[in-house]
Amino acid sequence: MAVNANDIEAALRQALAPQHLEVIDDSSKHAGHAGAGEGSHWTVRITSERFAGLGAVARHRLVYHALASLMPAGIHALAIQARSPGEAD
Rank of each mutant, 00 (worst) to 15 (best):
L21M: 06
D26M: 10
P18R: 00
Q81L: 08
Q81C: 02
L12T: 09
R59M: 05
L70H: 12
A17F: 01
L67N: 12
A56I: 12
L54Q: 14
I75N: 01
V44W: 05
S84V: 06
A88V: 11
R61N: 08
S48V: 11
G39Y: 07
A15H: 04
L67M: 06
S40T: 15
P18F: 10
H20D: 11
I8Y: 05
R59Y: 04
E49C: 01
R59S: 12
A88R: 04
S48I: 11
V44Y: 05
E87C: 02
E22Y: 01
A5R: 06
G35S: 06
V57H: 06
G39E: 12
G53Y: 09
R50G: 02
L12M: 10
Y64Q: 07
A82H: 04
R50P: 03
A82R: 00
R59W: 05
D25A: 03
D26I: 01
A73T: 08
A2N: 11
L62H: 08
M71Q: 11
Y64F: 14
P18D: 14
D89A: 10
T43M: 02
G74P: 15
L54M: 14
G35T: 07
A10D: 13
T47W: 01
L16M: 06
R83I: 03
S69V: 14
N4G: 02
P18C: 10
R50L: 09
P72C: 07
S28Y: 04
P72A: 03
G74V: 15
A10R: 05
G53N: 07
I46H: 02
D89G: 03
H76G: 13
N6S: 13
G39M: 06
M1R: 00
N6P: 02
V23K: 01
F51Q: 05
S28D: 14
Y64K: 01
R61I: 11
H65M: 02
K29D: 14
G74Y: 12
V44L: 10
N4Q: 10
